[in-house]
Design a protein around this nucleic acid. Structure first.
Length: 301
DNA sequence: GGCCAGGCTAGCA
DNA sequence: TGCTAGCATGGC
């Protein structure tokens, strides 16, 4: 079943797919030619495959086409649209961000070059937390490898257009694993503990993931940072990638620091506190600024 | 081989 | 409160 979706411009689907494309993943299948984005989304009722296609793929005429299985209830279709809207930040107030950041001369070139870029959010809150934990202190390539191994180990797939789409493991499944299971995938002992303990906290209802949506950034930080293995950087990345909150600046992030150094032509890499100071006037748009900084680091293919 | 990578914890002053 | 050694693996 297909649906059309007209997004308010600017919206550059191809530009947005560069990040997931730069790190090929089995869970998210990108076809740069169509262009399209395919993955399984866990709804409240079941896991459903979805393909999102850019009809034109230009910033000026942004139309998406959604392809999803027949036989979904109307409620499920609504949920799919909500989730896809979140993933592609369709409600992002792009112009507000641009008019704010145009005040800073360093930003004019970047905003021009990435015109129509919107953050791609993670499709699932649990998946988001786990991926951020795995990404702690590791280079992104290896972190992506660990995520792939986790997905393979989970072994769950959904058939879609005559191919098998791997699905990110469910909370239940991860909570049932042992630390040694993840050790065999080259997780460090600590990372294995952080990942599995987090899944168990969700299963034990010590953490209500969907309930986080009603909380402020600060409240979410307090809840999550009470768990071992979740610090400030992890919460900031989760709020940004997982929850789509708009004013986060993971200033301890090496990637952000490298990008600011490059954008501002600095001699050495700025430290966390310097980043926070530089970014202070970017409020309340710091999440988008962070995302643009990260995107600026992707090599032009 | 050494250093670094989209950090966090525990232990110490 | 603030600082830092240690963690563990792969890439360059």
């Amino acid at each position: 079943m297909d649906e059309e979706w007209i997004v308010t411009p600017p919206f550059d689907f191809r530009q947005m797919l560069r990040r997931p494309m730069s790190r090929p993943s089995k869970v998210t299948v990108i076809d740069p030619d169509t262009p399209s984005y395919t993955r399984v989304i866990r709804l409240r009722t079941r896991a459903v495959p979805v393909t999102v296609m850019g009809k034109e793929g230009t910033a000026g005429d942004p139309t998406l086409r959604l392809e999803m299985p027949d036989g979904l209830s109307s409620g499920e279709r609504v949920e799919v649209r909500e989730r896809v809207g979140r993933i592609f930040s369709t409600d992002m107030p792009v112009q507000g961000f641009y008019s704010h950041m145009r005040r800073y001369s360093e930003w004019s070139g970047l905003i021009e070059r990435l015109h129509g870029l919107r953050p791609i959010q993670d499709a699932d809150l649990f998946e988001s937390v786990i991926k951020v934990i795995i990404g702690q202190q590791l280079n992104v390539e290896f972190a992506a490898t660990l995520v792939e191994r986790l997905v393979d180990f989970g072994g769950e797939t959904v058939e879609w257009n005559s191919r098998l789409l791997p699905v990110f493991p469910s909370v239940e499944r991860v909570a049932g694993w042992s630390y040694d299971d993840l050790r065999t995938l080259s997780f460090s002992q600590r990372k294995a503990e952080y990942v599995i303990d987090f899944a168990r906290a969700v299963i034990d209802a010590r953490i209500d993931l969907e309930g986080l949506r009603d909380m402020s950034d600060g409240e979410i930080a307090e809840v999550l940072m009470s768990l071992r293995g979740i610090g400030r950087w992890t919460v900031e990345c989760f709020l940004l990638f997982g929850m789509g909150r708009r004013d986060l600046m993971p200033a301890a992030d090496i990637g952000v620091q490298n990008a600011v150094q490059k954008l501002y032509g600095m001699e050495r890499r700025p430290k966390e506190e310097e980043i926070r100071q530089i970014a202070e006037p970017w409020a309340p748009w710091r999440s988008y600024a962070t995302y643009y900084l990260w995107q600026s680091l992707i090599p032009v293919s």
